[in-house]
Design a protein around this nucleic acid. Structure first.
Length: 819
RNA sequence: GCCGGGGUGGCGGAAUCGGCAGACGCAGCGGACUUAAAAUCCGCCGGACUUUGUCCUUGUGGGUUCGAGUCCCACCCCCGGCACCA
């Protein structure tokens, strides 16, 4: 009887031993190729649930695989520790966010250790520690010096529940707060922005990086580049300085079809252009629009409305005078805040014109158009009509011709507009890195000198959310002296968006203890960029987008010599429970700890890898994990029950069996290696299971000699080591090998030895499977045909038929085409 | 509406270049062991029928091909993202 597999005992033992021996500590080593494998660090919200494990365990298995392949692997772990959820949780519990966060980190670190990962804990990064945020502030100063950080007044997203502003990226579809789900409202506030739009074009490109198509598309859509023309309509009003209204259009070919103009209600010209008799009506409309929530305003369902302001502008191309309206479907934040209304060729303008009885003038003829009225807007290409000298041009050419003409006349020029807005980083909350800026009555905005960093977050501030920055009321924090003129001055009291902290944390892991700079130049050069970055897809236009911007900005400042932080990105799917997403409110959160203590971390790791393709995610199922647990037990018993070679086997049979064992072993090594390379953990484990089942049969019959058996068992354990590191280590030791299996080289396969001796030849008649025969791989086409024709079952199908054609696919099939 | 990803047994899923559909696992059924149960091991396990076999079957309908889960066309459904962006 073998000793029982006891995961609790062996996992604890090896985790201690690995830690004592500093097995997974890494340093720069130029004799080995480096591999930087990074998993998105967790937010310090409390407990690790099974979703965290799903992100962490497979990526650790992959990192271990690269390590055994001979790479010097950096696979670090840390904590995203600043931010609203921690602050809110702390408030509701009446404890300080720092205390709450550090408690969570202690707890999470303990849980993370139970995974049995190769994290080098010496490199742990924690964004809420002054040693870290000092450098977050330093980067702010660098961006400020580079002209990429600026203060500006703008209508911003305000979350009434979180009591702070949010960046556009943090407002989800329909106008809700990404964190708490409250409806976001607009407020005009003076805030700090990062000039991310400067990199709009580059952020749309993903050259030289291997990222999922989905994420690249989302980022491109987020930037929302539109190529078109900006042109002006003439104004002539007494007492109005401006002589024109500028609009942006992607359809310059439709300019002759303009029958009205629409300004955003916030457009600065509205007040000046509104005629006295329309003033009451216009004021009323603007007031009504202000009362509308952002959700209401953004709804595409709502019928468009607006009012005529009693003024006209002139379309310079045909000298026509068109009425100017205001409507809130025109957004002040996009383009010029004004649009030309071409109802015949734009759906929104069409609806607006129908509602207010504005003329609809066709200037792009749909194919076969007879000059009748349109039922709907025609937005496809066509031929230009009613367009003066441009008549007859196809619309594509027309766009160019009209743009050329406008540029010649000086009435307009080609322009590019983006949907992307600058990144708003101010937050009116306590739990974040203070923005290192001082306001001096004499010198104005003064950046905190580098040597004065960090600007410490005061411990004793009243951090309850009031809608104003809590730091405002912390006198000892606010009051300071100007670094330039030494007169009394006040500190900026907003803190930075936490996405700022996570935009550079992957640089810090390279040299986490460096205290003279955010990172050591040599270490950075050695480790960066990240070779494989894994995590959830929910960060497509937030973290991943900001981090790319950050790196491009640092590159242009000469601080790093690469432009993309993550060479390969992989998004794992989501673990669901009972067909639903896991959530505290549904009460279906799976805590891994219970499973770890009952079945072992190795079983949890392997189950998560086996349940579904990693990028897809899958359902947590208690009986599914017990299947994995049974398999690990079978491996345990298979290895420890020992092997005895049967004397009764003839040497011919023995040799054949040994060739087969070697072949299957090498095929398994190939399959497991290739699957791991592609992060296809589920099929990798299936291959290991098949191999286990096969070895059990071999053991039963005892057909191979001891050394052959032992060789295959060694391969099994080595292949299992990334997936079930504790079990593999224990068995490796128990069968007499030297510590540690994790310092062994990854097994290699010999392509020659993977080749089959015999194959199953499929015989088809008219493409339908009729028979199978076992044949040697070396079989020739003629032999295969002959063998097939001799088969009784095949003969029956060929009788009284004419064989028109014979298809032969070497190694696969013979197909008789008959009539 | 637009963009991206999907639809295969009771379930999770597998299937390299167009070549044996359903690997591996779960659940289920039958058996061995046991006083019994658990555990373990062995066998069966898409459907229908006239069951040594035949036919049907990868969301639906068509097409290409000797041969289609895989390629092409049209449609339906699900998931994710974006959505008055001029």
């Amino acid at each position: 009887m073998v000793v029982k597999y006891n995961p609790q005992e062996i996992e604890k033992k090896w985790q201690q031993k690995w830690a004592e021996d500093r097995l997974y500590e890494v340093t720069e080593d130029n004799t080995k190729p480096k591999w930087y494998a990074l998993t998105m660090f967790p937010y310090t919200s409390g407990d690790l649930h099974i979703g965290h494990w799903y992100a962490l365990a497979p990526s650790d298995a992959h990192a271990r695989f690269k390590r055994m392949q001979g790479y010097n692997v950096l696979h670090p772990m840390g904590f995203d520790a600043f931010g609203l959820p921690a602050e809110n949780a702390a408030i509701s519990r009446g404890i300080h966010p720092f205390t709450w966060t550090m408690q969570n980190i202690d707890n999470m670190r303990h849980q993370l250790r139970s995974i049995g990962a190769i994290y080098d804990w010496n490199r742990e990064v924690n964004t809420c520690q002054p040693e870290y945020y000092k450098w977050t502030q330093w980067f702010f100063l660098k961006l400020y010096q580079a002209g990429l950080a600026y203060r500006g007044k703008a209508p911003v997203n305000w979350c009434p529940r979180c009591q702070t502003v949010l960046a556009n990226e943090q407002v989800v579809a329909g106008g809700f707060c990404e964190r708490c789900g409250a409806a976001v409202i607009r407020r005009d506030l003076e805030q700090w922005f990062f000039h991310i739009t400067k990199y709009a074009d580059e952020l749309m490109q993903h050259n030289g990086i291997d990222w999922p198509e989905r994420i690249k598309t989302m980022q491109r859509n987020w930037v929302g580049k539109s190529v078109g023309t900006e042109l002006s309509f003439a104004l002539d009003y007494l007492g109005v300085e401006e002589k024109e209204i500028r609009v942006f259009t992607t359809r310059p070919d439709t300019i002759f079809g303009v029958t009205f103009m629409v300004l955003a209600p916030e457009h600065p010209l509205v007040v000046r252009l509104t005629s006295p008799e329309k003033k009451a009506e216009v004021d009323d409309y603007i007031a009504r629009v202000r009362r509308r929530s952002e959700i209401e305003r953004q709804s595409t369902e709502r019928e468009k409305d607006g009012v005529f302001i009693g003024a006209y502008a002139v379309n310079r191309l045909n000298a026509e005078s068109v009425p100017i309206w205001i409507a809130d479907y025109v957004l002040m934040s996009y383009g010029t805040g004004a649009v030309m209304g071409v109802p015949a060729h734009d759906e929104r303008d069409f609806a607006f014109a129908k509602k207010y009885d504005l003329p609809i003038k066709v200037v792009i003829a749909p194919p076969g158009w007879q000059g009748g009225e349109l039922e709907t807007a025609y937005t496809e290409p066509g031929t230009m009509v009613n367009s003066g000298q441009f008549n007859g041009l196809p619309s594509q050419q027309g766009m160019e011709a009209v743009s050329d003409f406008l540029e010649e006349k000086g009435w307009g020029k080609r322009a590019i507009t983006y949907r992307l807005r600058d990144w708003l980083i101010s937050r009116q909350r306590y739990w974040g890195a203070p923005i290192p800026i001082i306001y001096c009555p004499n010198c104005g905005v003064v950046p905190v000198p580098e040597q004065d960093l960090p600007v410490l977050l005061p411990e004793n501030a009243e951090f309850k959310p009031t809608g104003e920055s809590p730091l405002k009321y912390c006198e000892q924090f606010v009051n300071t002296t100007c670094p330039q003129c030494s007169s009394p001055a006040k500190r900026e009291t907003d803190t930075m968006d936490t996405f700022m902290c996570s935009s550079w944390y992957f640089l810090r892991y390279a040299s986490p203890h460096c205290d003279t700079a955010p990172f050591g130049a040599d270490e950075l050069k050695y480790w960066l960029p990240v070779d494989l970055y894994t995590g959830g897809a929910e960060h497509a236009v937030m973290h991943l987008f900001y981090a790319r911007f950050f790196i491009k900005a640092l590159r242009d400042m000469g601080l790093v010599d690469f432009g993309e932080p993550f060479s390969r990105l992989f998004n794992q799917g989501v673990i669901i429970v009972g067909r639903q997403k896991m959530s505290k409110s549904r009460g279906n959160v799976i805590i891994p700890d219970e499973y770890v203590s009952e079945l072992g971390a190795d079983a949890v790791r392997a189950y998560l890898m086996f349940v579904a393709p990693w990028e897809q995610g899958g359902g947590w199922d208690d009986s599914g994990i017990s299947g994995i647990s049974r398999w690990l037990n079978r491996v345990w018993n298979l290895v420890l029950k020992g092997y005895s070679c049967s004397e009764a086997v003839s040497s011919a049979i023995r040799q054949k069996a040994e060739r087969e064992l070697s072949r299957i072993t090498h095929q398994t090594i190939r399959k497991v290696t290739n699957d791991l390379e592609k992060l296809r953990f589920n099929t990798m484990i299936a291959a290991l299971m098949e191999f286990t089942n096969y070895l059990a049969k071999v053991r039963e019959t005892g057909v191979v000699i001891d050394s052959a058996w032992r060789g295959s068992i060694d391969s099994l354990l080595l292949l299992l080591a990334p997936t079930a590191p504790h079990l593999a280590e224990e068995l490796w030791q128990r069968i007499g090998h030297d510590y540690s299996i994790h310092n062994q080289s990854w097994p290699r396969w010999d392509e020659e030895l993977t080749k089959d001796e015999e194959i199953t030849l499929v015989i088809q008649v008219n493409g339908k499977l009729r028979d199978r025969i076992a044949v040697p791989v070396s079989i020739t086409e003629a032999e295969a045909r002959q063998l097939a024709l001799e088969r009784q079952r095949v003969k029956a199908y060929l009788a009284s038929k004419e064989v028109v054609k014979i298809i032969y696919v070497p190694g696969r099939l013979v197909n008789f085409v008959v009539r």
